[in-house]
Nucleic acid binder design. Sequence first.
DNA 1: CGGCAGTTTGATGTTACTCAATTTAAGTGG
DNA 2: CCACTTAAATTGAGTAACATCAAACTGCCG
Lengths: 232, 232
Amino acid sequence: MTCPRRELEFCGAILRQPAAASSTHAALDDWQHRRTLRPGEVAVAPDQTCPSVLVLCSGWAFRFVQLQSGRRQILNFLLAGDLFSCNMVFQERCNYYVKALTDIQITELQRSEVIRRIADDPSNLTALAKCCATEAATADGLLAVVAQGSAEQRIAYLFLHLMQRIESRSVIRDQRYQFPLRQQHIADAVGLTVVHVNRVLSLFRKGGILDLSHGVLQVFNLPELKRLAPLK
Amino acid sequence: MTCPRRELEFCGAILRQPAAASSTHAALDDWQHRRTLRPGEVAVAPDQTCPSVLVLCSGWAFRFVQLQSGRRQILNFLLAGDLFSCNMVFQERCNYYVKALTDIQITELQRSEVIRRIADDPSNLTALAKCCATEAATADGLLAVVAQGSAEQRIAYLFLHLMQRIESRSVIRDQRYQFPLRQQHIADAVGLTVVHVNRVLSLFRKGGILDLSHGVLQVFNLPELKRLAPLK
DNA sequence: CGGCAGTTTGATGTTACTCAATTTAAGTGG
DNA sequence: CCACTTAAATTGAGTAACATCAAACTGCCG
């Protein structure tokens, strides 16, 4: 469709390419299916079994768990091409929600077919492994910074991390990034309150480091931002 | 050796069983190797390339990252049978430390052989996937509780989580668990200071919930402990 | 006995939370 | 285009949780 070529990116792309030596696009359509969601709509929830492997194909989404205290923890943000999670390849049940942040398109891949392709082609297995490794490293990094860092460090880290991921997908001009996050999302991702996130963002703005508004992140002082983030 | 049968547990056991239809134990010895470490010794560090897949075979260890602030974040604790991390199966380089908490034995598996066995037997792939899924879920859970929970909730969660894992490996009597953690380790795992961990532990003790001393965790009021932990 | 690592306790400081109100931005229907 | 509604961002004041600093205490080992 209007989907960019990088549609399935990391794991996804590599899952798609080595189809059984049949026809190119026509044959693919019967094991993959497209779905569209509006902002705020839930793509998967922990109680439902999910028969297919889900890949975000355009837009932004986020994966989170709901705590019984009423709070939620955003585990990560999903960008175009991201697998919802690597577990999804092998597990029917997931223990998290995925919600659309913007308008999104998601691709549903038939699980059995995905597994077959992985078993068939070792390079696919390697690709999946790389995907798992990245996912794990991301989780570790966020844990470390949330557990050990100050509010400024947490937010700086989150932004840098997202910036890198966006950069790997598209060309950035003038250090401007499309950033459809609300302050509440940032808060839920790094374990702060919205109010406090707001204060830190104000500080960053006044300090000439960056400005996030109207869904656009603009970085003025990248070195300073990097200095704040405690690892990487 | 003196290693219990559950040596390689989750992934490990399944990696070992389906050897190429050759002899049983004699043939295995040439692709796996045993190493012994004392408490505090480092098994792997981020800068070194690691030619083999490492499995903890006895004792306790922990995986952590060192932040430039001087703090460290313990990512998880390793029990007998645990793979150091699932990434290790495919990646030579790891971006974390693993350090012995007690006397430990570790098994080094030749990576190429491990990969071959996974590729050969689909059930091994499934086992590895299950291992990744568990690892990811664990990471997500810890992140959520560290980001969103109070000091008491964090510690309660960590303890419950470790208790479950110990239970899955051995029989527990009287709610007594071997727990070789120092308070510093708890602090570094859940993002608190030692002093504060100490206070919370005192509270738990005075509240008749549990007592951790001399390397033994004894739980008196399990329901209350569970009530504290915000998820699971 | 002295030294060391770990634990415990107290006093004080600071970060980040809570509650509450105001302002701005973004829609929506007329 | 303008009144009306709603969601998001911003600001202030008071508070609670946790950090920091410092010291004393414990058990252990040489």
